[in-house]
Nucleic acid binder design. Structure first.
Length: 798
RNA sequence: GCCCGGGUGGCGGAAUUGGUAUACGCGCACGACUCAAAAUCGUGUCUCGCAAGGGUUGUGGGUUCGACUCCCACCCCGGGCACCA
């Protein structure tokens, strides 16, 4: 009869005791222990924890706990990402103030987080919307401003008509707002930006040295979108002006028969255009289109800038200039030359009857009539002709030579500077004030935190809510003088969370945002896991922050995260995404009430490989299976006694210690759980379970099942916490028993297995096969060859 | 279109990195216990075959004594970028 397993009682008991004993408070340094920083993305206070949160926080806790047992001083912190759109929208939906909402929901979530039984150090917790935190967000803004990395710029920006604010490029997914899915519009506005583009090269090249999964690196490279090419000046005929184009294919320059300028290009306004009215109409129409419409429109449109002629610098030929919306204002120079070796240029030229001039033939010398008569567009690299002194060269040879003669080598990026202004209330106020002439000035440090006023009308209405605050207006006039006005935009929430990991390690510091001393003790983060959707947003931004601060001497690291991992997602039982709309959500609180936090944690660990991004359907049956496993472990304790550890059991114990430890280290929790099941199944077969063996099982299981293992450990007459025990070590010489199984093959096909003593020679194994009734018949008597892999395979080749 | 992953039972997934494919769990079937059911325990469970045997890791080829693993071509799924010059 198995002992009862009252998870509610056990989990409550140990959570209280841990808190009382401050078991998980992490000192900055412990003699004889190395510091180890492991991090998970902190939640925004949504009011309720869902299964995804359990997957995000309770599963990596297994890793943190093993590291603790392995003798590291482990920091596993948690806090709330409380500023920003999600939190504010949640508050507005419930019709209460964001500050109240944050307080209320953070309190409830804290309780839910506690129920996971994680080894979070709550003494270091932080909330980004608290003045003690955001004063440092503002301080960092001022540092960026000082270094010219924060600037005010005018240009076309993404505008979400639903959230009533501008958005960074990273927050626009397929032309829609990532939060509310409204189609994003383009607006010409003056906004604050961070110069992340200055770091584009380093953000790419430093990836090489990082031990990160390739897909994450690749996604960042794609996002930054580095292109090498050349800038080439095309002088305008009968004018001192010129248009500069960017191209990645300077080898086709001789065939450049027209220029294309982006409709939004500011230069259009100043060019001597004869058909000004027509052009202006086109520009207006193009700009009214959303990004989605523009991309969706396969048909290219454009208008010729009559009266404007550019000169191809290679030939001196005058060529027409067109405005067309397939040219993008913010890529390269916003101007390109059209030629016969680019599909888009050819399609455009054919539509409008612009002449084309092919200048490349295939490298292999194959027939190129179809290319010459323009029935096929050849985009590859080839051999040049009709290209002056460069005729006969290959594209690769010609590119650098033509660049040298007519232009300058240049690198450009898809990445745009980070737009950080938000026309919303719930964010850190940008610490800038304007003098009566409208010039910006930083708010002096002594006035930080530059408090978010409480008297503003927070409803989003397209202009910054802070503009409605009398208190802020008066504050500015009082401090700076009559006619001075405040900046009324707040900062993007992603600014707050670009540096939070540096605050956990020095959370109470009132003099610095994060001291170098603490950074030296803790940084870099050894393991960082989070959602795949943050790859080109938060992860990129925080890398940029770290690098910028590193250059200012404010951080010790050039890269914040030693290892970054993206987590998969937990689907509903029906294989779809969990959604209130489908009514298929799983409430973790209910599951915890039914089977306990320990079972839920272990089930999520068991569901699939944590180190791979996948989608895993929830299975209540699977959860029950894990609960049964834990009940069996409880049942085992009845049979624990002073038994002798057999040779076979010793091998299994050593194998288990190795497997479980290694798999936790690489976040393959599913296979460590499987090994623990194997071990406990084997122990269950014994009449008496040696105490020593049972206690090894408990220690290996403790990171997964922290409450129950503590209870069972105490029942074995221990007074200290199992979580303060050392992680078991294995003896590499005892990973194999005296006997090994050897597969017997004929021509590579397995016919059976044979048991041989460890270290058996080929002759001995052959003799065993000959002695086996069944195998004797199947194996050739006179094989042409025998392949023998000691301890593994004997292969008879006919 | 370019670039990353991936394709293994009814399902989630294993496979010591070239060496017994399908571990572990779920589900299912049968049995034990029970008046019965649930729970629990036991046995079985890739496939064809009564068996002896044979076949099987998306498809087709190749390398090798031996391929889920390496190479080539193709198909499909997931993800990133995308009128980026």
């Amino acid at each position: 009869m198995a002992k009862s397993y009252d998870h509610k009682k056990i989990e409550k008991k140990w959570q209280e005791r841990w808190e009382k004993q401050k078991l998980y408070e992490t000192p900055d340094a412990v003699a004889g222990k190395k510091n180890f920083y492991t991090l998970v993305e902190f939640p925004y206070p949504s009011g309720d924890l869902h299964v995804g949160h359990w997957d995000a926080f309770a599963v990596p806790d297994i890793f943190a706990r093993m590291k603790r047992m392995q003798g590291f001083n482990v920091l596993y912190p948690i806090g709330f990402d409380a500023f920003g759109l999600p939190a504010e929208n949640a508050a507005i939906k419930r019709n209460i103030g964001p500050a109240e909402w944050i307080e209320e929901s953070a309190m409830r979530m804290r309780g839910q987080l506690m129920s996971m039984g994680n080894c979070f150090d709550w003494s270091r917790t932080l909330t980004t919307s608290e003045p003690s935190y955001y004063r440092w967000t503002q301080w960092l803004f001022l540092k960026f401003y000082e270094k010219g990395l924060a600037y005010r710029g005018t240009g076309l920006v993404n505008w979400c008509p639903n959230d009533q604010t501008v958005l960074a490029n990273e927050q626009v997914v397929d032309g829609k707002c990532e939060r509310c899915a409204a189609v994003v519009e383009q607006k010409e506005l003056e906004q604050w930006f961070f110069k992340i583009r200055d770091y584009a090269d380093r953000l790419i090249s430093d990836l090489d040295s990082l031990d990160w999964p390739e897909p994450i690196k690749e996604a960042q490279r794609n996002w930054i979108g580095r292109s090498e090419g050349a800038e080439i000046d095309f002088p305008l005929a009968r004018s001192g002006e010129k248009l500069t184009v960017f191209t990645t294919r300077p080898d086709t320059l001789y065939g450049g028969t027209f220029l294309v300028i982006a409709p939004e290009h500011p230069l259009i306004a100043s060019l001597p255009i004869e058909n000004r009215k027509e052009v202006d109409t086109y520009v207006k129409k193009a700009m009214a289109k959303s990004e989605i419409e523009r991309i969706g429109d396969k048909e290219k449109t454009g208008v010729e800038l009559k009266g404007v002629k550019a000169v191809n610098p290679t030939t001196g030929v005058e060529i027409p200039v067109w405005a067309a919306d397939y040219a993008i204002a913010h890529f390269g120079t916003g101007v390109l030359f059209g030629d016969a070796h680019d599909e888009r240029d050819v399609a455009f030229a054919k539509k409008y009857g612009i002449p084309l001039k092919p200048t490349l033939k295939p490298l292999d010398g194959s027939d190129d009539t179809d290319i010459k008569n323009l029935s096929r567009c050849f985009e590859g690299k080839g051999i040049l002709y009709d290209s002056g002194e460069f005729s006969g060269l290959t594209s690769d040879e010609a590119m650098s030579k033509i660049t040298e003669k007519f232009g300058t080598a240049k690198v450009t990026y898809k990445l745009r500077d980070w737009l950080i202004s938000r026309q919303r209330y719930w964010g850190a106020p940008i610490p800038i004030v304007y003098d009566p002439e409208g010039r910006p000035h930083p708010v002096p440090e002594e006035h930080l935190p530059w408090l978010l006023p409480t008297d503003a009308d927070i409803k989003p209405k397209g202009t910054s809510p802070l503009g409605s605050s009398k208190e802020l207006k008066q504050r500015v006039e009082k401090l700076f003088g009559k006619g001075w006005t405040p900046e009324t935009d707040t900062m993007d929430g992603f600014v707050d969370n670009s540096w939070y990991f540096l605050r956990y390690i020095d959370p109470k510091n009132e003099k610095e945002f994060s001291s170098i001393k603490r950074q030296k003790e803790w940084m870099p983060v050894q393991r960082y896991s989070g959602g795949a959707e943050h790859t080109t947003v938060h992860v990129l931004y925080s890398r940029f922050f770290t690098k910028a601060l590193f250059d200012m001497g404010l951080t010790t690291e050039n890269e914040p995260y030693k290892v970054r991992m993206n987590r998969g997602i937990i689907l509903a039982e029906d294989g779809r995404k969990m959604s209130k709309r489908w009514g298929n959500t799983v409430n973790p609180d209910e599951q915890v009430a039914n089977v306990g936090a320990d079972a839920v944690r272990t089930y999520l660990a068991f569901i699939g490989p944590y180190n791979e991004v996948g989608s895993f359907p929830w299975s209540t049956n699977g959860l029950v299976g894990v609960r049964r496993f834990l009940e069996r472990v409880v049942g085992l304790s009845d049979k624990v006694g002073d038994g002798h550890v057999s040779a076979d059991l010793e091998v299994l114990l050593n194998q288990s210690i190795k497997k479980v430890g290694e798999d936790i280290e690489s976040m393959k929790f599913n296979t460590s759980v499987s090994q623990l099941m194997i071990l406990s199944n084997e122990l269950g077969k014994l009449q008496t379970i040696p105490k020593q063996a049972y206690e090894i099982l408990l220690k290996l299981l403790a990171p997964f099942v922290p409450h129950l293992c503590e209870e069972l450990w105490e029942a074995q007459a221990h007074t200290g916490s199992i979580h303060l025990e050392g992680w078991p070590s294995f003896d590499p010489s005892k990973l194999q028993g005296g006997e090994v199984t050897i597969a017997v093959q004929v021509g590579g096909k397995t016919k059976g297995i044979i048991l041989a003593k460890q270290g058996a020679t080929e002759g001995e194994v052959v003799a065993l096969v000959r002695a086996d009734q069944k195998l004797k018949k199947m194996t050739p008597e006179r094989p042409s060859r025998v392949v023998f892999v000691p301890g593994k395979i004997i292969n008879f080749i006919v």
